[in-house]
């Protein structure tokens, strides 16, 4: 038990003194996962909207693939992104392996199917006649899509939260494509793994608490957005 209490005490100390290294790691986590989520939102909606609004052969297959993609193992993504970005790989000339850019890329690959899958189901759950009603009110196609997204805003923000939650907490891909380089690609999860393996439990505790606080804060902001302007 002493190990735990001592760890928690030191963790609080690190947090309260705003250790510059810890701060940098936290900000990088937020930046990488935040950008990855934003990119995934654009990609996810870009897939979900046309799939939801159109009938085409193979639609069920596309939906099944998206749903499978929601459970994409981060280490598999890490492996493929690493191979693609490897110096002798097809995108090696970009020279972005072991940079935050590679981490954003890998995390976007993980979060995009999550956001696309939940958004698709959100759009499909709107009343079937709503699209015709919106068109009958004189909406152009972009206006119609915008109103549908607005109508589905609750589950859509849930999709964003799920996407962000998926990438802020993943470690496999980040460590593989980022390399956990101090001052460059070290984020909360990769640092926690490292400190735990070194036996520095107090640092690992501090990082874990920060991870939880970060996840909570971001989700609290999103929840506020979600419930705002919602007539009660």
């Amino acid at each position: 038990m002493d190990l735990i209490w001592e760890g928690l005490r030191k963790a609080l100390e690190l947090l309260l003194t705003l250790d510059p290294e810890v701060l940098r790691i936290t900000l990088l986590s937020l930046e990488v996962s935040g950008l990855a989520t934003l990119i995934s939102l654009v990609i996810g909606l870009g897939i979900a909207i046309p799939v939801a609004l159109n009938e085409f052969p193979g639609k069920r297959l596309v939906i099944a693939l998206l749903n499978t993609g929601m459970g994409l193992p981060p280490v598999v993504v890490g492996l493929f992104v690493t191979v693609l970005l490897w110096r002798s790989g097809p995108f090696g000339f970009l020279e972005i392996l072991y940079t935050p850019t590679a981490m954003i890329l890998a995390q976007a690959v993980i979060a995009s199917p999550i956001i696309a899958g939940i958004s698709l189901s959100a759009l499909q759950h709107l009343p079937p006649g709503l699209r015709l009603q919106i068109l009958a009110l004189g909406a152009s196609r972009p206006q119609m899509v915008w109103l549908l997204l607005k109508e589905a805003r609750l589950p859509l923000l849930a999709a964003v939260m799920a996407g962000f939650g998926g990438v802020i907490s993943e470690v496999g891909a980040s460590i593989m494509v980022g390399g956990n380089i101090k001052g460059q690609t070290r984020v909360l999860t990769t640092a926690t793994v490292m400190e735990t393996s070194k036996g520095n439990f107090e640092v690992a505790f501090a990082l874990s608490i920060l991870l939880l606080v970060l996840a909570f804060t971001v989700n609290a902001v999103l929840t506020h957005l979600q419930q705002r302007n919602r007539p009660r």
């Binding site: 009343p127 006649g129 009603q133 009958a136 009110l137 004189g138 909406a139 109508e151 007539p231």
Partner: peptide, 25 residues
């Protein structure tokens, strides 16, 4: 479509206030 409009059996109102709904078109 901007010169006609349609009302369905299901009122299909938006998740907003009555005023916002009436103003939608």
């Amino acid at each position: 479509r901007r010169r006609m409009t349609m009302v369905f059996q299901d009122p299909l109102l938006f998740d907003a206030t009555v005023a916002q709904n009436i103003a939608a078109g």
